[in-house]
Design a protein around this nucleic acid. Structure first.
Length: 883
RNA sequence: GGGCUCGUAGCUCAGCUGGUUAGAGCGCAUGAUUCACAUUCAUGAGGUCAGAGGUUCAAAUCCUCUCGAGCCCACCA
């Protein structure tokens, strides 16, 4: 016995923080400090959480998976870099701070002014940024904090400006008036992807429209109508096409043009639509095709403009009520129907979107780029996935990606937010201008550059860039781009991008677009998409349902290792997973089991040391467990490098608990097995197992490793190598021994023997020699005081029996025996065997089966038949004896 | 309207490119506690693999349809 004490139960809270500190101090999170010669690099860019965020279960999955991969690759001898950072998340952060100020002081950002407001936001970010970073540490994430970045820091800002200028110079960034998604609350544009849809019950108004009757969900936009459109082949309306018609309206008659356009569905409604070019995307396009004027009637606050007469100043909703009432009075409403409608809302504040015309900056995704041989941004982004330069897991998302890209329209990148990267564009104010704050967008003279231009009267564009513009550069801006740094050449392209499928478009696609254009290279080789985490009933977690699971609570209660295991095992890529506290508690139990297995091994070892020399297994059990371990090492390495995490976790779990703890450890307690070799084998298995488990549950494994008198931490150990010495036959042999033991235990329960009570047993088997060799083990694990082994069947006194493949087992009767019950049990078994035999016989009599099935299958079926026929025979003999 | 995922024991899920008498964990039942661990151990009950067709010697696994749950995309007023 070793002369040290290990606590009976593993208490993660006692060790985790100091272990993390030890790792950080070791410097091994930084690839530059890793020991040994490491040629290949392996890089992951951490998807940067919002700087003001707090760790939620979604982050926890992401961190668990990425840390698993990075730790595995580190054990594999790679130069591993996991680069962390935070995102300024322009719209999310600004919205959050605006709300805080509104709630506390009742002020808007406009009350404070740009400068003050930004100061408040930056202070808030600074204050809360450490929260998320420390929470990332709590998960055990082995990321290189020395390379940590923030999307608004100096280097990344330079990258953003450089990217903008380069794209502008290549003509890929342009400014134009178009109808854009406008959030009246944020007071900003949104990209198409930042718009979400809510299905709502609304009204559909059928209105009389001059000679037409048509339906609209938004009668207030009638004030901005300039045309009516019908389908070119719709004969009903041909006579009107090209005409200008006066339409009676609530503000008097107004003139519209009738146009024919393919966008109209003649089957739908009356086949006529009113065209409001300024406040509808389709209508804007129709108007452009037919050169129709547009009339803006809704302003940036979502209110009706001065040109709307008595409706001016009303919100669109108020205006709708008023205008409908007025139209009803005028008899212009034909009917009103209930209507299920998709309402577009802002993805950050849920405010309904108003399409309004506005002059904004866009990225042209369909312009041929000279230096790429005429390929467009779209083409390039499509090609790298189609050509397999980037692999998406699971691959079904590749289709989703193609579909999105193929339908991508120009990306609106300017935002009227204050928080974010200011657009590096400057306008020259006219010298004679009186106004101090002249709207720069009306100026003609423009300068686009990384640094502000020299000279007088230059005013910077007030707008900021879409937050996804800067995160699109994340994989390389964090490595020093636009400088040609050593990090950039060493670690880019990154190897893995691991994130939720919900930001495939927002982020993954944008990164690919930006990287293929700016670096002429992919940002990453593999994309692994995880699913959403839901509650145990599969519901989305939300505060209102009170079903959220806070990973920090779980870490406190069950430990980071258990939390990680529960998020990885049973989780497959692309599919949502359900999680419950019970599941986490289950893995807490497992972690404790691993702890106690180690405790047993360490306490029984006469000297604890790393096993470096090759082992020579002696017994059947030794050979068996080492064979299983060898298989496990290979299986784990292969599948982890292919990103099959769950199955690997399950297999190591099965090995640890069901094979090692339940069998080998129990066998090692048998007196006859008590040898120095057994101790060494146990130590060896432990040392291998800790390495295999380390990527999954780093804390407990590192803590146990600390007992093994290793010079170096577990985190930088080499991945284990299989011994490759073992004979396959041991599996079958050991199987028989296991089955005999289980069968006896089974009989003991059947017979209601007290667990502590020893009994006698007789085993009849052709493999008597094998069994004889394991007699001590069988006696011990099955609690026998005597085991008789016979080769041939012979007449025995009445006894309980278990007939298994390869052996007959008899338990002599002590006292009275319920013969009727025992006969019943055996008859049931006989019947089962008969059914199976006839099933096999049918199969083997089928000519087509014999002709077409592969030889191995046929032979396997024949073997099964023989075994079961033999078994049936034995059962019937026993039945005869009993009767 | 287009596309995708899922439907296997009471619950959560494994079962890959078709070939075991369909598995695991939790829960449940019975029993066990000096001897690493009750955050434990032993044993057991529980499923015609959503339904219907088809392909095949062979289908939970491949194809078609139906039903049910959910997600994504789309300019249908």
């Amino acid at each position: 016995m070793a002369n040290f004490e290990i606590p009976k139960a593993y208490e993660p809270q006692k060790y985790e923080d100091s272990l993390y500190q030890k790792w950080e101090e070791s410097g091994f999170f930084n690839p530059d400090n890793l020991p040994g010669r490491r040629q290949k690099s392996f890089t992951i860019s951490l998807p940067p959480p919002n700087a003001t965020g707090v760790l939620h279960i979604g982050h926890a999955v992401m961190l668990a998976i990425q840390d698993l991969v990075i730790r595995f690759q580190r054990l594999q001898g790679k130069k591993t870099l996991w680069l962390p950072g935070t995102d300024h998340a322009a719209i999310a952060t600004q919205t959050k701070v605006e709300k805080l100020i509104k709630d506390k002081e009742g002020k808007t950002r406009f009350d404070l002014g740009r400068e003050d407001f930004l100061k408040r936001v930056n202070d808030y970010v600074k204050k809360s940024q450490n929260t998320i970073k420390n929470q990332i540490r709590k998960m055990g994430s082995s990321c290189d904090w020395s390379r940590e970045r923030y999307t608004l820091d100096q280097g990344l800002t330079l990258a953003v400006h450089t990217a903008f200028v380069e794209m502008y110079q290549d003509g890929l960034i342009y400014r134009r008036v178009r109808v854009v998604n406008w959030c009246p609350r944020c007071h900003s544009t949104l990209s198409d992807d930042e718009v979400e849809y809510r299905s709502v019950k609304e009204k559909l108004y059928w209105i009389k429209y001059g000679p037409f009757i048509l339906a609209t969900a938004r009668p207030e936009t009638k004030l901005g109508d300039t045309a009516v459109a019908v389908h070119p082949s719709d004969k009903r309306y041909t006579k009107y096409v090209g005409q200008k018609i006066m339409i009676p309206g609530v503000l008097g008659d107004f003139e519209i043009t009738v146009v024919a356009d393919g966008a109209v569905d003649p089957q739908f409604g009356s086949g006529v639509i009113k065209v409001t070019p300024a406040h509808d995307f389709t209508d804007f396009e129709i108007a452009q095709r037919h050169n129709i004027a547009f009339k803006q009637v809704i302003d940036e606050d979502g209110k009706m403009m001065a040109n709307c007469g008595k409706y001016a100043g009303k919100t669109t909703w108020q205006c709708r009520q008023a205008i409908v009432a007025d139209m009803q009075k005028m008899g212009l409403i034909e009917k009103i129907e209930d209507y299920d409608h998709n309402l577009s809302v802002c993805y950050r504040c849920e405010t309904p979107i108003e399409p309004i015309p506005s002059k904004q900056w866009f990225i042209n995704v369909t312009k041929p780029i000279d230096k790429f041989g005429g390929k467009t941004l779209k083409d390039q982004a499509l090609a790298v996935v189609k050509d397999g330069e980037i692999k998406i897991i699971p691959d079904r998302f590749e289709k989703v990606y193609y579909h999105w890209l193929e339908n991508l329209r120009d990306w609106c990148i300017s935002r009227q937010l204050w928080f974010g990267h200011r657009i590096p564009v400057y306008y020259r104010k006219q010298a004679n201008s009186k106004s101090e704050t002249l709207n720069p967008k009306q100026q003609e003279e423009i300068y686009v550059g990384i640094e502000p231009p020299k000279g007088e009267r230059w005013v910077q564009d007030p707008d900021t860039l879409d937050t996804w513009f800067s995160s699109g550069l994340w994989t390389f801006s964090t490595l020093g781009w636009p400088e040609k740094t050593k990090d950039l050449t060493t670690y880019h392209p990154t190897d893995l991008m691991e994130t939720g499928y919900d930001i495939l478009f927002f982020w993954i696609a944008r990164m690919i677009i930006m990287s293929t254009y700016l670096l002429n290279d992919v940002p990453f080789r593999t994309v692994y998409l995880h699913g959403l985490v839901r509650d145990e009933q599969g519901r989305k977690m939300s505060k209102s349902l009170e079903n959220t699971i806070d990973p920090l609570d779980m870490i406190k209660k069950y430990g980071a290792d258990a939390t990680r295991l529960s998020l990885i095992i049973g989780n497959t890529p692309g599919n949502d997973m359900n999680i419950s506290e019970a599941k986490i508690a289950g893995y807490r139990n497992f972690v404790n089991k691993l702890w106690n297995i180690s405790r047993y091994i360490l306490m029984r070892a006469s000297s604890v040391q790393l096993i470096e020399k090759p082992l020579q297994p002696k017994t059947l059990a030794d050979n068996w467990i080492l064979f299983e371990l060898d298989n496990l090492i290979d299986f784990a390495a292969k599948n982890l490098s292919e990103y099959n995490f769950s199955i690997v976790g399950e297999k190591i779990y099965e090995f640890t608990w069901l094979k090692l703890a339940d069998w080998y450890v129990e066998i090692s307690k048998v007196k006859s097995q008590n040898s120095k070799l057994t101790e060494e084998i146990l130590l060896y298995i432990l040392q291998v197992l800790l390495k295999l488990w380390h990527p999954f549950c780093p804390f407990v494994t590192e803590q146990i490793w600390g007992q093994l008198h290793s010079k170096e931490l577990l985190i930088v150990q080499p991945w284990p190598k299989p011994l490759n010495k073992i004979n396959q036959k041991v599996i079958k042999d050991f199987d028989l021994i296991q089955n005999i033991i289980t069968a006896i235990r089974n009989l003991r329960v059947e017979v209601k023997l007290a667990p502590g009570q020893k009994t006698k047993a007789i085993v009849i088997s052709s493999k008597a020699k094998l069994i004889l060799g394991q007699v001590e083990i069988i006696k011990s694990l099955a609690r026998l005081d005597d085991l008789k082994i016979l080769t041939k069947s012979q007449k025995l006194a009445k006894s309980f029996s278990a007939i298994i493949a390869g052996a007959e087992i008899y338990l002599p009767v002590s006292g009275m025996m319920d013969i009727v019950k025992e006969v019943k049990r055996l008859e049931a078994e006989a019947q089962q065997a008969k059914n199976f035999i006839s099933h096999l016989q049918q199969k083997l009599e089928n000519k087509r089966f014999l002709e077409r099935a592969p030889k191995e299958i046929i032979n396997a079926e024949k073997d099964k038949l023989a075994i079961n026929q033999n078994r049936l025979e034995k059962i019937e003999q026993q039945l005869k004896t009993l009767r």
